[in-house]
Amino acid sequence: MRLTIEVWRQENPDVPGFFEEHAIEGAQEEMSLLELIDYLNDHLVSEGREPIAYDSDCREGICGTCGITVNDQPHGPVPNTPSCRQHLRSFKDGQKLRLEPLRSAAFPVIRDLVVDRSAMDRVIQAGGFVAVDAGTAADADSMQIGHGRAEKALDFAACIGCGACIAACPNGAANLFAGSVLNHLSTLPQGKPERSKRARSIIQEIDESFGPCSVYGECAVTCPAGIPLSAIAAVNRERARAALRRGKDD
C-alpha cells in the first residue's frame, strides 16, 4: 500500500506545531494505525531523524492509552474502535492520512501526538471511587445485586478513560466520561452513600476543564468502550438530585 501521511509534529508544549508530510511505500493492509507509525518511525530513525512520539500500551483496545485523530475522527474512521484496533484496510491505496493528537483545550500537546490528559485524572480524583470503609472482603453473595443492575453498572464501568469522547465533542465536553462514572457508581449499592457528594465534586471538576454538553452525540459514536449516550444525561440528573439533597452525602 502507498500512503501519504500528514503528521502533527510539535517538539514541546511551548512551541507551535506543524504538519509534516511523508510518502509511505510498502505499508500492509493488516497494519494497525499504531503499526503504521512504528513503520514510519523505523524509517525516520534510520535516517537519523526524530521518531514521532505517540501513546500506546496494550494494543488490544482495553487500556485507553492510545488515541490519535485520523482525518478529523478521534481514534480513526471506524466507529467505537480504539486507534490500536483500526487497520489500514479502512483506507484506499494512495489515500492521504492526516494524523493529529486528540484535540481539546483540556488536552495540551506534550509532544507530537502525545497529549496531557490529566484533566481527566482530576475528575476521577474528585469522585471516581468509593471511599466508604468496606472492611475486609465480604462473601460474594452477601450483597445481592440483580443481574440487570449489575450489567447496567458494567456497561458504564467499561470506560477506559482514553479521552476520545472529549476530543470528539465540538464543545470539548466530558459528559460521556463523567456520566459513565456517575452512572456506574450510582447504580451499585457500594456507591450510594456518597452519591450526592460525588456528583457535586465531579461536576464541579468537569466545569473547570471541560465544556458544556449540547447533545451532538459524537462522543458515543467514537467511544471505543461503547458507552451509551444515555451517560451524558446522568450529569444533569445527578447534579439536580444532589441539589435537592443539600448538605447530604448520599
Binding site: A106, N171, G172, S214
Partner: peptide, 27 residues
C-alpha cells in the same frame, strides 16, 4: 454563555467531520 464556554473549552482546533443530521442541527 454556553456557546462561549464551548468554544473556549474546545480550543483552537474546531471539530471537523461530524456525523449526521443531529450534529448538523446541534452545530
Amino acid at each position: 454563555v454556553i456557546s462561549a464556554r464551548a468554544k473556549a473549552r474546545r480550543g483552537k482546533f474546531a471539530r471537523k467531520g461530524l456525523h449526521g443530521f443531529s450534529s448538523f442541527t446541534a452545530r
